[in-house]
């Protein structure tokens, strides 16, 4: 059971949600936005998270949108991963979401929770980084739309009290050739030792990563290396690994040396696959 109590609110508009957050924050309740809630419940039960106010965003219409409109793919933060997989509007996102946790948990886990949670895997973030998506954020100053790269690449950098409402991607990215590979220690649904996602865009290969380090990220510097056709593919991969922007994890799932070994092999496979799927 969760050992502490909190206030629960389920606003029906963005404005109500932001106001509820501000009220609770002013009262010193350290509020949090709540969508699927699986991570919040797990951490609260273990006393790894405390809050005095939970603001459930599932009643907000804008957070429940998923559609392609006027060459834009719009997805609300309260859409579950199961719905993402079944709708399959952005195949790279669907395939990447498919093994994020098990099926029943995916009925509860939402896009917003996966992107904004404390766990650093954030696998559903990677397809949006590759598509140069924009995020719609709601805060005390109203709505703002910014590149996802600015506020999510590496780690979430939302301002206090800001609510992730939607993610918007240009439709031209939805049908590009892609690859998404998840390597785990044991079960398909475990956290990844290595997750590599790649898109073949007109200007070259784009790649984003999770599980290798304590951050889910896309790096332009690494992409420059991986697209440097002056070098053989294997050498590009070695350079990319040497220039990895974060320490490679050494934890209970895998040693850093084994993770590097898996990363090298996965990158090799991914590069070959994307070469075969050239436009």
């Amino acid at each position: 059971m969760i050992s502490f109590d909190f206030q629960y609110e389920r606003p029906e508009s963005i404005e109500e949600a932001v106001q509820a957050f501000q009220r609770a924050d002013s009262a010193g309740l350290e509020p949090i936005y709540y969508s699927g809630g699986t991570e919040i419940i797990s951490m609260a039960r273990l006393n790894l998270l405390r809050t005095g106010a939970v603001i459930d965003i599932k009643g907000i219409p804008e957070c429940n949108v998923m559609a392609v409109r006027q060459d834009r793919f719009v997805i609300g933060s309260a859409i579950t991963l199961t719905n993402v997989v079944e709708a399959n509007l952005y195949p790279l996102l669907s395939e990447t979401s498919r093994n994020v946790a098990d099926f029943t948990n995916r009925n509860k886990i939402t896009i917003g929770g996966n992107l904004c949670g404390k766990f650093y895997y954030r696998e559903a973030l990677l397809p949006f980084l590759l598509a140069d998506s924009q995020v719609v954020l709601a805060g005390a100053g109203g709505l703002r739309q910014v590149p996802i790269d600015l506020v999510m690449n590496g780690e979430p950098r939302l301002e206090k009290g800001e609510l992730l409402v939607q993610i918007i991607s240009e439709a031209r990215y939805l049908a590009l050739p892609f690859i998404t590979v998840k390597k785990t220690k044991q079960e398909k649904i475990d956290y990844p030792i290595v997750r590599v996602t790649g898109l073949r865009a007109a200007e070259g290969i784009r790649m984003a990563f999770s599980g290798v380090s304590e951050a889910a990220f896309r790096s332009r510097e690494l992409e420059e290396v991986l697209n440097d056709t002056a070098l053989p593919v294997q050498e590009r991969i070695e350079v990319a690994i040497r220039r990895w922007p974060y320490p490679i994890l050494n934890d209970i799932l895998s040693s850093a040396a084994y993770r590097t070994f898996v990363l090298r092999n996965t990158l090799t496979d991914a590069m070959e696959a994307l070469e075969r799927r050239r436009l």
Binding site: Y8, G37, T38, I41, S42, V54, D56, K58, T82, F103, T104, N105, N107, K108
Partner: peptide, 13 residues
Amino acid sequence: GVPIKSCMMLAIE
């Protein structure tokens, strides 16, 4: 109608 792990849902939800 959707299978959900009831330990991962608040009753109030």
